[in-house]
């Protein structure tokens, strides 16, 4: 099977750019990343297809000279799915903007909890502040 180096390199660059954008906080940029990356991945299917040939229509083309139509069908499905995903992510970004004034993906719940605990200066149940029971004064301060 022969395949195009140009396509493979373009796919690589697109996917790399997409992954970089995915690491951003803002949903809009993540969406850009997804779009760029999905285009890169779709190109990979064209790489997998092998050499481009003539239209795959029985009767008008010699079967030997045809392109492989199957990857194109798969890419078509993938494009439709990406379109739906984009619509959903745009809606989600807008809703986040309505609620929070920005469209950033927020922290993990656990991270937020730990930060809140630190801000409240709470200690865990197992931690005991040793005091003399009769005076109530700290051992450390004495």
């Amino acid at each position: 099977m022969t395949s195009s180096l140009a396509l493979a390199v373009t796919a690589g660059v697109l996917i790399a750019a997409g992954v970089y954008l995915l690491t951003e906080r803002s949903l809009t940029r993540i969406l850009m990343g997804v779009l760029v990356m999905s285009n890169g991945v779709n190109l990979l299917f064209l790489v997998a297809m092998g050499r481009a040939g003539r239209p795959a229509i029985i009767g008008s083309t010699d079967p030997e000279a045809m392109s492989d139509p199957l990857p194109q069908a798969m890419v078509l499905t993938a494009i439709v799915i990406t379109m739906a995903v984009s619509a959903f992510v745009v809606t989600m970004a807008y809703r986040s903007f309505q609620l929070n004034g920005n469209d950033e993906v927020s922290d993990d719940v656990e991270d937020a909890r730990i930060r809140a605990l630190a801000e409240r200066d709470d200690v865990s149940d197992s931690y005991e502040d040793i005091k003399f029971s009769d005076t109530g004064e700290d051992v450390v301060s004495e």
Partner: peptide, 20 residues
Amino acid sequence: VVVNLLSASLFLTALATVYA
């Protein structure tokens, strides 16, 4: 959604590799 978008892209890449 973001996690699953990433996994969908990975899945497609895997599919292209399998087909190739």
